[in-house]
């Protein structure tokens, strides 16, 4: 989790031009770090490349827009990193 967090925080800091120190496990990617849906495609691209996974951006957005999930579930940094770790584990399995 910690290495995933550091990597994702670096990516978001770079793409969103956010000060690295401001990014914590409890930061909300959208509301706190001001990464919009278009920026998040670039974030997902970098995460995909870095971890050799496919972040299911569209599925997540659909779940949120349909009211089947809270945005925090995917876009709180600690939750996002946990999802990434799950995807990494599924890929490795």
């Amino acid at each position: 989790m910690s290495s995933t967090f550091d990597t994702v925080a670096d990516i978001i800091s770079d793409i969103g031009d956010v000060e690295r120190e401001k990014i914590t496990p409890d930061s909300h990617v959208i509301s706190d770090l001001e990464i919009d849906s278009l920026d998040f495609l670039d974030v997902a691209f970098s995460i995909d490349k870095e971890f050799d996974i496919k972040v299911p951006v569209e599925d997540w957005m659909t779940e949120i827009n349909d009211g089947n999930a809270d945005a925090e579930e995917y876009f709180l940094m600690k939750n996002l990193c946990a999802k990434i770790d799950e995807l990494k584990s599924e890929k490795a399995a």
């Binding site: 495609l41 997902a44 691209f45 496919k54 972040v55 299911p56």
Partner: peptide, 9 residues
Amino acid sequence: EHDGAGYTM
């Protein structure tokens, strides 16, 4: 360049 899940670069 990259075929993502729901997006493509």
